[in-house]
Design a protein around this nucleic acid. Structure first.
Lengths: 330, 330
DNA sequence: CTGAAAGCGCTTACAG
DNA sequence: CTGAAAGCGCTTACAG
């Protein structure tokens, strides 16, 4: 059957402690012995069981990644960055899609605790932070990615959503737009609220007040319908700021259905800069997705290393990416 | 500190064996005792360590998922389906992006073996199947998803790539197109070869022969350039079949750059039907992505359950999805 | 219906 | 430089 540390020890005529030492590069082992044991391990195709070592060493080298939906391109790109950065440090990652449902968050939280992951990156929203209770209860290290949770003091990496919203407003106003609409995510998502707030403030700073009738919230599914309402009303906007690329694509399709040409009849700006934006030639506020993922892993691992430390909070700047969906007011 | 099975046993005044039995619903425990122990576990927030139980029971309830790139929408959607179906059966999944590099395949294969996952779904290509050696060596159950590996006898789920290619050809020919081009993936990818083969055969069956100069292979990055070569040559095609949606989007952008209108000047058909296709209004051959993921998990779990059994091979039918990127020859 | 004991495959003081 | 032994937190025959 599969070789164990005992098989190697017997084959080498040493104790399992010695084999363990050469595996982990600990203790002082004579060079010849080390080489010999290494050779035997290689020859027998032996790799130590991480389950057994985790039981004693309390390290599983596994992380959990909670996101709303791994099939959403934004989170898929985040996941890739997290995977790569984790891998670089020897960690594997479990994917956990929550659909933003507290019940799923809690189920995964309990599961990850039972699996004894070394840490969890939380990139999902939730109504009630107590869904994380199973993690908190056992002091499982966590880090927040693109989310804020004011109630808990944990390492966090976000982009400056407020500045991103403001950048969108400034871009559209510079293009001459004055009648601005906003397609936001659900009210409960703080990043979306911040984007809208930044957009509104920057608009007002330029002397433009948002018409409350032109500010709507929308889920992923009904974005096209919500956008249609905006675009078909009388006195329709000349520009729409959407709080993520998916919503912006809903707006693009609504515009098409309403017979409007983009950008001539209406400018549209998204947020995130996922592959969806590049593929649809959407002007958007880019999040540094790769750095978000990398930074979250780094913060988490640092936190695992020194649990006492005060939690860091890193804010990354968003960047306007101009493409074909926005243009000067005609 | 964190409660263990000993704490629960002591609190309840019973042996750990009894606690273990109520956890696993095994043995005969008096109803009152069971209820009492359940209560104590709940009160102390106790959940058994899956690491410890894995060491004895040999079940980690973890699966590995090997894909080329989790940030590619096709595989992100696959991952979601695998995650959900796994979750339904109590399994968590590790994401493993290989970039189609044998070296990464092998590294992940070794890692997953060390982590003692209960099985691995392989949805990535590789030049040399021996990259899977670490898995094969320890008899880790595997299942193939949207890939074939003739050398090993393992459960497999694929879509009928040949039929999909043929469907694309029939669609274009029915629209009156005769001068057909193909943008394929690298030659080494069997699914791509099959799609091209099906396309070619169906075309020939309709009396249309492919011009070798109009059949090109391309990576993800240079798809636009490859498509431009096709579209800018003299005697350009009136329709292009692309072996996946990403390539088709490259073609879409190439067409735009070349000043061609889609679909009036050139029809384009993709493959996969990821979110990218719906978002760009691309006519495409749809793979049943969700069913692919579900089926792979089911085959794998069945294989885990009865290792002796002969491996199943399930072929799912693709479906033509007509959108705005193809139309009758004008 | 319940418990004592061995064992899963490692790591880690500790002793020599 | 190397080994004996305890322990990590469970499960599983086996005995009663």
């Amino acid at each position: 059957m599969k070789a164990t540390i005992y098989d190697i020890a017997k084959e080498a005529g040493v104790s399992i402690a010695t084999v363990s030492h050469v595996i982990n590069g600990k203790g002082k082992i004579s060079k010849e012995r080390r080489e010999e044991i290494r050779g035997i391990m290689a020859r027998m195709g032996y790799k130590p069981s991480m389950i057994a070592s985790a039981l004693t060493s309390k390290k599983t080298y596994a992380l959990g990644l909670l996101v709303p939906d791994i099939s959403n391109p934004f989170f898929a790109e985040i996941a890739r960055a997290v995977e790569d950065e984790g891998q670089r440090h020897g960690y594997s990652v479990f994917i956990c899609s929550t659909d933003n449902q507290d019940e799923k968050v809690e189920r995964y939280a309990a599961l990850l605790q039972q699996k004894k992951v070394d840490g969890v990156i939380i990139g999902t929203g939730m109504k009630d932070p107590s869904a994380l209770e199973p993690l908190l209860h056992d002091n499982v290290p966590i880090a927040l990615l693109a989310r804020e949770l004011p109630s808990v003091n944990v390492p966090t990496v976000i982009v400056d959503d407020y500045a991103g919203g403001a950048a969108a407003a400034e871009h559209l106003i510079a293009l001459g737009h004055r009648r601005l609409a906003v397609l936001a995510e659900q009210e409960s998502i703080s990043s979306s609220r911040e984007r809208v707030r930044g957009f509104r403030q920057a608009a007002e700073a330029a002397g433009v007040t948002l018409d409350p009738a032109l500010v709507r919230s929308s889920g992923m599914k009904d974005s096209k319908d919500r956008a249609l309402e905006l675009l078909q009303g009388e006195n329709r906007p000349t520009a729409v700021f959407c709080c993520n690329d998916m919503l912006a694509i809903g707006a693009l399709r609504a515009a098409k259905q309403a017979g409007l040409c983009i950008p001539q009849d209406c400018s549209i700006v998204g947020f995130d800069d996922t592959v969806l934006a590049s593929v649809t030639d959407l002007t958007t506020i880019a999040q540094p997705i790769e750095r978000l993922g990398q930074t979250a892993v780094q913060l988490l691992l640092r936190h695992i290393g020194q649990p006492g430390e005060r939690s860091e909070r890193i804010v990354l700047p968003p960047v306007l990416v101009m493409r074909q969906s926005s243009s000067a007011l005609s």
